[in-house]
Simulated assay, not measured.
Amino acid sequence: MTLPTTTRQFSYSKFGSYNNLVLQEVPLAAPKANEVLVKTHAVSLQFRDLMIPQGTYPGFLEKNLVPCSDMAGEVIAVGSDVKQWHVGDRVSPNFMLDKLHEEVSPEILNSALGGAVHGVLTEYRTFPAHSLVKIPAHFSYEEAATLPCAAVTAYNAMLGGFDPIKAGDTILVIGTGGVSIFALQFAVASGATVIAISSSDEKLKVATKLGAKHVINYKTTPNWDEEVLKLTGGVGVDRVLEVSGNSTLARSIGSVRLGGSVDLIGAVGGLTNNPPADFVLLAIFKGIHLRGVYVGSVKQYKDMNKLIEANPEATRPVIDKVFAFEEATAAFACLESQAHVGKVVIKF
């Protein structure tokens, strides 16, 4: 086949807002010896994709950045040294292109798509062969595009650390966004009991359908940590998936058992609301583990896919809305509204 020599992509003419995204056609180079050229079929969005143009995401950002980290696509060409991939393979890149295992370095951190290097909101892109993972055979491209950041992060939090969840554990999941929904699904598939909290009864109905045993509306039950303790007989949960950040951290610590874990995922609740000053003392007194989770590795991505393939119905991605490629800014606006459950996807 004749390979494309150009690609249409969105990039930032300047930061400040996702409304500054510009659609352009740019030259496309052929893959180098160790690279794979992939045709994009779908991209999913993360909260990070809103933070970056607003200037609230830490770290170096590529000039004229092509945003987004999560895609699924089809291999259309491979470099001369590539043996593990073939034309027609259905693949997805890891969030950090060079994070193969658990080790981390500044260089590995700076291989994160849609930030320190150009992202995937483009029709075609080359990737290092080592960064790619085969997507589950029973997933559509839209479903597979939700995996690299949200699902791998959830898997790392639930099953990738020093103390993976096990059957019989009780897990508290905050919110019903992409990471939270995947964490709920992976916990249920692992035999754990899930308590889910959200601001919407309609969203909590989805959580219940996915297997949450208990649900709490934090708008009608603002002291939800006290309710969690009641539901657990005063003991607390084994693990909390904390996605909101400073605004909920103190209550998350209050919800966890002695010696339990709080996995710090994001800051959806904002960075300006400081938690009460005594939360550090409470964390020390309870002897809990606070673990920062920054997505995961290629190995974890592959391990996660085994869990997904072994539990095909329980782990099917929840997609709220799908937008056309040309409607990318509308997809960003949908994500910003936080009215969605699960993932927002852009289809090519």
Rank of each mutant, 00 (worst) to 15 (best):
H118A: 04
H118D: 15
G119W: 14
V120L: 02
V120D: 08
V120W: 03
L121C: 12
Y124L: 00
Y124K: 06
Y124D: 00
T126K: 14
T126L: 08
T126Y: 04
T126D: 09
T126A: 05
F127H: 10
F127D: 04
F127V: 00
P128W: 06
P128E: 09
A129Y: 13
A129G: 06
H130M: 09
H130G: 12
L132K: 10
L132F: 13
L132Q: 11
V133N: 13
K134L: 08
K134C: 06
A137T: 13
A137P: 09
H138Y: 09
F139D: 12
A145W: 04
A145Y: 03
T146E: 01
T146R: 12
L147D: 03
A150V: 00
A150W: 00
A150C: 02
A151K: 01
A151Y: 03
V152T: 10
V152W: 01
V152L: 01
T153M: 02
T153A: 03
T153K: 07
A154T: 03
A154Y: 04
A154M: 02
A154E: 07
Y155F: 11
N156V: 01
A157E: 08
A157G: 09
M158I: 11
M158Q: 06
M158R: 08
L159A: 14
G160M: 07
P164G: 11
K166W: 05
K166M: 01
K166N: 04
A167G: 13
A167M: 10
G168H: 02
G168M: 09
G168R: 00
T170V: 15
T170Q: 08
L172P: 11
V173K: 02
I174Q: 13
G175T: 07
G175D: 13
G175I: 07
T176L: 09
G177F: 05
G178A: 11
G178E: 05
V179H: 08
V179D: 00
S180V: 04
I181G: 03
I181H: 07
I181E: 02
F182N: 10
F182T: 07
A183F: 10
A183M: 10
A183P: 12
L184I: 00
Q185P: 02
Q185M: 11
F186E: 05
F186N: 06
F186Y: 14
A187T: 09
V188Q: 08
A189K: 05
S190N: 14
G191F: 03
G191H: 01
A192C: 12
T193H: 13
T193W: 06
V194S: 13
I195M: 06
A196N: 14
I197Y: 02
I197L: 14
I197F: 00
I197D: 12
S198P: 10
S200G: 08
E202H: 06
K203M: 07
K203S: 15
K203P: 14
L204V: 05
K205C: 05
K205R: 14
V206Y: 12
V206S: 15
V206E: 13
V206L: 14
A207Y: 09
A207T: 06
T208L: 07
K209V: 00
K209T: 03
G211V: 11
G211H: 06
A212P: 15
K213H: 10
V215G: 04
V215E: 11
N217I: 03
N217E: 13
Y218S: 10
